[in-house]
């Protein structure tokens, strides 16, 4: 095999991938934000005492987990305009982000649901007995404890999403991978270009992993007793 190192370094240090990398990151964050919101809604619906809402959550989950995400992406970009007589005709970037977010929302529903049910029901009962409304008990007591269970797998999903954005090359969103495909279809340096593409993904993954560590340190690690000022003052 001939490794064209000059083509490799030229591609690696060119600014061509800068904007695509930002695009990839942007899609990842927006899609995940959408997914997390949907996930909260989905989890609350799945745990609702109303059967209709539970069915809705179940249907959402079943559908979006069951259909390949690539099919969903192409649906949002290509099929929806046809279906709606061009009434809905989204730019590729938006169609792709929505498709990824909706699909991911199904997984986030499951992650958040399992976080919520991991909290001892006695916690909610105690909050309710103290006069908190359902919403306040959820926000102040249940959710902070559920987050410890929700955050680690959500970090994984973030990183998975970063890489799944590469599927958007199918609808020509200018993210990292499709930028790479454009380059190698002109210079035929498949290996060198894919190598650079991989380096970009690795770098962004490392970035997200670092972010995940920071967030976990803040929320997930069990708080240790902070030699309390109060106990010193009054103890």
């Amino acid at each position: 095999m001939v490794f064209d190192s000059s083509a490799f370094f030229e591609t690696l240090f060119s600014s061509t991938f800068l904007i695509p990398a930002l695009t990839t990151l942007g899609i990842t964050f927006v899609a995940m934000a959408l997914a997390i919101m949907l996930g909260f809604g989905g989890a609350l619906a799945a745990l609702s005492r109303y059967r209709g809402l539970r069915w809705l959550a179940q249907g959402y989950l079943g559908f979006f987990r069951g259909v390949p995400v690539l099919v969903q992406i192409v649906f949002w970009y290509n099929a929806l305009p046809v279906l709606t007589d061009n009434a809905i005709n989204l730019p590729a970037l938006i169609a792709g982000t929505i498709a990824l977010g909706l699909n991911e929302g199904a997984y986030m529903t499951e992650i958040i649901r399992s976080g919520l049910i991991s909290v001892d029901p006695g916690q909610r009962e105690a909050a309710r007995a103290l006069g908190m409304t359902k919403a306040k008990a959820m926000r102040r007591i249940v959710m902070p404890q559920a987050l410890k269970v929700i955050i680690p797998p959500t970090g994984n999903q973030f990183i998975a999403m970063l890489k799944t954005t590469s599927l958007l090359f199918a609808i020509a969103v200018p993210e990292i991978f499709s930028t790479g495909t454009n380059i190698y279809s002109q210079n035929f340096k498949y290996f060198e270009v894919l190598f650079v593409v991989s380096i970009w993904y690795l770098a962004l993954t490392a970035l997200l992993t670092g972010l995940q560590k920071l967030i976990e340190r803040r929320f997930v690690i069990r708080p240790r007793r902070n030699t309390p000022i109060l106990a010193q003052e009054h103890g």
């Binding site: 001892d120 006695g122 916690q123 105690a126 309710r128 103290l130 006069g131 409304t133 359902k134």
Partner: peptide
């Protein structure tokens, strides 16, 4: 819910399993 909650706030309850807020 908000009205019942306000009434409940004046009724203390102590549970068999304590149910202190763990976080």
């Amino acid at each position: 819910d908000a009205i019942t909650s306000a009434k409940r706030a004046r009724i203390g309850m102590v549970f068999q399993r304590f149910n202190l807020f763990a976080h």
